[in-house]
Design a protein around this nucleic acid. Sequence first.
DNA 1: GTCTATACCCGGATAGAC
DNA 2: GTCTATCCGGGTATAGAC
Lengths: 166, 166
Amino acid sequence: MAEDRVTQAVAVARELLEADGPDAVSMRAIADRMGMRAPSLYKHVPDKATLEVHLIAAALAELGQALRTDRGDLTSLAGAYRAWATAHPHLYTLATAQPLPRDRLPEGLEDEAAAPLLAACGGDQDRARAAWAGAHGLVSLELADRFPPDADLDAAWGAFVAAFSG
Amino acid sequence: MAEDRVTQAVAVARELLEADGPDAVSMRAIADRMGMRAPSLYKHVPDKATLEVHLIAAALAELGQALRTDRGDLTSLAGAYRAWATAHPHLYTLATAQPLPRDRLPEGLEDEAAAPLLAACGGDQDRARAAWAGAHGLVSLELADRFPPDADLDAAWGAFVAAFSG
DNA sequence: GTCTATACCCGGATAGAC
DNA sequence: GTCTATCCGGGTATAGAC
């Protein structure tokens, strides 16, 4: 089908992103790995933004799936969130450090990713957003290597979960 | 003194950063605003990284100052944190989205910025880091315009403070 | 559907004249 | 201490031949 090459381009873009970060994801590099020159890639993919939308959608879907797989309590949700994010740091950052392209994302994807945490918060949206922000803050500071060198991240996560459990 | 031009370059870099974001901060643009060409700027400043270190130091100092000015309880600290960050979004992001250049920062600066929150957490480092992460998560998601359009951020901050107060 | 060539940007930083 | 000229690199994307 016509989308085969798009799928392949997204897969290659993801490999580059996960391996070497956002600066490594260029249309030239993607094309190279597909065995063609950059201009040829434009016969299959309209632009780079389209590839990023696909990557963001994949990130949301996989993170949501990871959260739906576990027990559903805040402790295990926090663990699943941190585990997925640290396993896919650049993908996580891509999906959280900029506005979502909501009009180009599959309908309901954002809500599905948020559902497990919302459920764990008894349907309280504000509390769920605060808890999400807490997990996101911990993850993003960890990914950015921004905590002091001596910080005990496991203990910080424990304190976070304790605050939202009490 | 010899540092005058460095100070001026830092000030100009900050103006550019705060006005138009990180992509607007180039050695060419800084030099232009100082009435010279980029190569001349290198007679006063060794490289761009040096300017960024100064900006990060300024951000930490000012944010710390903002936190030291208020009542010291978690509610007012959260308000001060959010207020400073949203007033200086690009500076805040510069100072939090990458590892700190600790070896080039004034001694004690990081600890001074963290002190008010640590005090509000009764000296519990892990709890203080979790609380910091919560505030950072809320701020960074707000600055990135990453919350759903209908999200009530004030309420989310309220839920965050409530979780860490209870 | 691929290619080469190119257009158009941008960046940090250096050499060497004055 | 300023300049011009330049080096190096990068990027997205298009035109037009084949």
